[in-house]
Write a protein that binds this DNA or RNA. Structure first.
Lengths: 160, 160
DNA sequence: GTATGACCTCAAGTACACTTGAGGTCAAAT
DNA sequence: ATTTGACCTCAAGTGTACTTGAGGTCATAC
């Protein structure tokens, strides 16, 4: 168990590619999920003579960012977009990651702003004591995070 | 189309229960989704003599909060929890909604804090120019939003 | 040289959050 | 009275994000 990880370090030098098991242990992502991410083109591997996957070390970073996105409820298709300019098969450059960082930050900012807005609105609701339908922007999402498709109607006064 | 909504207002007084179509138009949630939420016990309806659903007006509020949660990636099971103390079959009191508001606010705060933390870390990464694996807490989620199951190992220096 | 564990592929299964469709009922209008 | 649109139930299908299992290969250890 812990000897697996110890073996990883003992057997492989710092520039060696990683096996799927090593990737899994070091990112906390199941091998099956790594297979899945690879099938989507989110990560990539080379193969040994015996057809086993080997991952370049920069894949650790990609996988970690994928798990972060998951924690925040960002769908994999959006992660795909966020990785748009980061090369998959070669080690990304300084600038590649810098661009990616800025993309991620913009995405996070949008989410944070949406949440902050809702917090303010809920505070207002607590203030007014009734989660009022009259004033609460919470209940008219068109102007919160942007509506997809036909959004709710504004609710009338008598519904409060 | 727009005459539907007009008809709603013309036909029903402010204290009348709403049909599923009215609920759908006024919340932007499809009738099939309302059926689904009802099957989960997130909302409730009474039935007419002809077995059609009728929704009390306070259900509008519940449905709107469900859609808010969805926008933030909160699973319906968590919404269930957030509604724990809000009565389903009678109109909730002032205090019921106030308690619910506070629950929601705590939930939102946790999410916002997680995102803010990641933003700070990404800013650091942009600062250091390389999304470094050395310093970046982004890549060690244990202390960010709390890990579920076996979390990633801390990454070693040479992986940066 | 054979056993053991890590790996491979491919198909099927799971959980969540719904939508779609079939087949039938209800209610308002003509 | 019958048509039309809104509604009903129940079963099956959809998309996302994977996991599980079967059947087989690879690599290291004894």
């Amino acid at each position: 168990m812990s000897s697996d990880a110890a073996a990883d370090r003992a057997v492989h030098g710092p520039d060696e590619p990683l096996t799927i098991g090593e990737m899994s242990r070091r990112t906390g992502v199941a091998p099956s999920a790594l297979h899945f991410y690879e099938s989507l083109g989110l990560i990539a591997s080379t193969r040994t003579a015996g057809n086993q996957r080997r991952y370049a070390r920069h894949m650790l970073r990609r996988v970690s960012l994928i798990t972060v996105a998951k924690r925040l409820g960002i769908p994999l298709s959006d992660v795909q977009d966020a990785f748009a300019d980061v090369p998959l098969t070669q080690t990304p450059s300084h600038d590649d990651w810098q661009r990616a960082s800025r993309r991620w930050k913009r995405e996070l900012e949008k989410r944070r702003e949406g949440i902050e807005r809702l917090e303010r609105e809920l505070t207002g609701c607590i203030g007014c004591g009734c989660l009022s339908m009259k004033a609460c922007g919470l209940l008219n999402p068109d102007d919160a995070l942007g509506s997809q498709g036909a959004g709710p109607q504004r609710l009338r006064d008598e519904d409060a």
